[in-house]
Write a protein that binds this DNA or RNA. Structure first.
Lengths: 226, 226
DNA sequence: CGCGATATTATGTCTGTACATATTAACAGA
DNA sequence: TCTGTTAATATGTACAGACATAATATCGCG
C-alpha cells in the first residue's frame, strides 16, 4: 500500500462496498495520508483520478464527497474505418462513389458556417469485399484546400483529414435510419432494414471542416465497455 | 504563463498549429520547464492531462510524442431516463407494463452468468405523456434480492438499481431495430420504423446484475460533443 | 435569532529534491 | 557489421513544505 494506484484501488473498493456511501463525505486527504502512511500529495493524486472518472466530487475546503449518482460514461473511440475493419480481421476495401463541388443542403451549410460550394464525397467502405459502411461527406474546401489535390479514388477523405485537418471540437450523434431503395441497394440490405447511422461534424479554430453521415451495414452495433 | 492549465493550453495550441507535428517528439519536460519558468512537475502535470485526453503518447525515457492519429473519443453520459426527459423540459411519466419471475432467454442468462428465474420487467417511459423509451429488463434477484420488495409500478427498476446496486463493470451497445407490430403499437411508431436501441449489461464483483434493452421513440439520436 | 465579518481549514497548486523505471545510446568484442 | 552489456537519461512517482483558493465554522452585534 504505497503507490497512488494502490490507494485509488482501495478507495474505489470502499466506494463499491458502501463503506463510503453515495453522497457522503470521505475522510480528509490529510487523514487518509496518515492512515496509508504516505504523503498527502499521493492521496490527492489517487483521488484526482477517481474524480476524473466520475466517482467523487471534490471542492476546496468542502471536502471530497462520493458522487450521489455516479455519472456513468460510455466512451467510444472514433476509429478510422480501415482500422475498425482490419481490427476485426477483415480485408478492408474502399470505393469512391461520387465527388462533386456543389452547394450543400441548407442545414449542413448552416452547421459548417459556410456559403458557396463544398466538396461532396460519397464512398463505400468494404469488409471482405462486402459493404460495411456508406459515407456521405461534405468538406469545407476553404478550410482545407489541400483536399482538392487528393485522389479520393484511392484514399478515403477521412484518412486524409485525420492527418491534415486537426479539429478542435466536434459533435457526434448515433441514430437509426430505415434503408430506402438506394441505400438498401448499395449496402446489400433489405429495403426498410434499420441501419445504425452516425453523424459527425468537426470544426477547427475558425471554421467548420467537415460534416459526415456514415450508414453502417445491417446488424451493426456500436459497442464499448463502461 | 504560470499554471499547469496555461501550459496545457499552450502545448495544445502548438499541437494544433503543427509546431509539434503528429508523430514527432516534443521537447523534454526539463527543457519545457526552463522555457516556461516553472517546475518540471508542473510541466508533467500539464502533459499528463493531454496524454489522458489522447493528444500525446508518453513513455519513460522514450519521451513524449504527439499522437500520430489522436484517438478521438465520444463520451456519452448514461443518464437516468427521468433526468434525460426532464432535462429536455418535458414531463416525465412511467408505466409498468409487466413484471414476472421467469427463466431468461439463453443468451441473456449466459451473459449474466445465472441459472434459474430472473425478474423480468417491461416498462414504458413517457415524455409529456407520449412514449419516449420502452424498457425490457432482466434482473438477477440472487444478486439484488432487495428489488423483490420494490413497487415497480411507481418507480423504475433502473432508478432503484442506481442507488442500491453499484456495478463495477458493464457493457454498452447502440444499435438499430425496425419496429415490429408490437413495438410500433406501444411506441406509437410506424411499423418498420428504424428505432435506436441500446443494450446494457452490468456486473458487480461476483455476478451479473441486470441486462436491459431500451428502445427509443422514432427519430431519437444519442448525441454528444467531441 | 439572524446577519455580517473574521477565522479556520480542506482541497488545489507549485516547488525542489530524490529515487524508480523503462528505454535509448554508447561501447566493446566477436 | 552485428550482438550483448553497460551507461545514460526522460518520464513516473513520492516526499515535504509552502502558498492559494474556496468553503465552512465561529464569533460578535443588533
Amino acid at each position: 500500500m504505497t503507490g497512488w494506484q494502490d490507494i485509488e484501488a482501495e478507495a474505489l473498493r470502499r466506494i463499491h462496498a458502501r463503506a463510503w456511501p453515495p453522497g457522503s463525505t470521505i475522510p480528509h486527504e490529510a487523514d487518509l495520508a496518515k492512515e496509508f502512511g504516505v504523503a498527502r500529495a499521493t492521496v490527492n493524486r489517487a483521488l484526482q483520478a477517481l474524480a476524473d472518472a466520475g466517482w467523487l466530487d471534490r471542492r476546496r475546503k468542502a471536502g471530497t464527497r462520493v458522487a450521489l449518482h455516479p455519472v456513468r460514461k460510455a466512451t467510444f473511440s472514433i476509429p478510422i474505418l480501415r482500422a475498425e475493419i482490419e481490427g476485426a480481421d477483415s480485408v478492408y476495401g474502399y470505393r469512391l462513389l461520387g465527388r462533386t463541388l456543389e452547394e450543400a443542403p441548407a442545414p449542413i451549410a448552416a452547421r459548417l458556417g459556410v456559403a458557396g460550394a463544398l466538396l461532396h464525397v460519397t464512398a463505400l467502405h468494404l469488409a471482405d469485399g462486402r459493404p460495411y459502411a456508406h459515407e456521405d461527406r461534405w468538406v469545407n474546401v476553404a478550410a482545407v484546400p489541400g483536399i482538392m489535390a487528393v485522389d479520393l479514388a484511392v484514399a478515403s477523405a477521412n484518412e486524409w483529414l485525420v492527418t491534415h485537418a486537426p479539429f478542435v471540437r466536434g459533435d457526434y450523434a448515433i441514430g437509426a435510419a430505415a434503408a430506402d431503395d438506394a441505400m438498401a441497394g448499395v449496402m446489400g440490405a433489405a429495403i426498410g432494414a434499420a441501419l445504425v447511422t452516425v453523424e459527425r461534424t468537426t470544426w477547427d479554430d475558425t471554421a467548420g471542416i467537415t460534416a459526415v453521415r456514415i450508414t453502417f451495414r445491417e446488424g451493426h452495433w456500436v459497442r464499448t465497455v463502461i
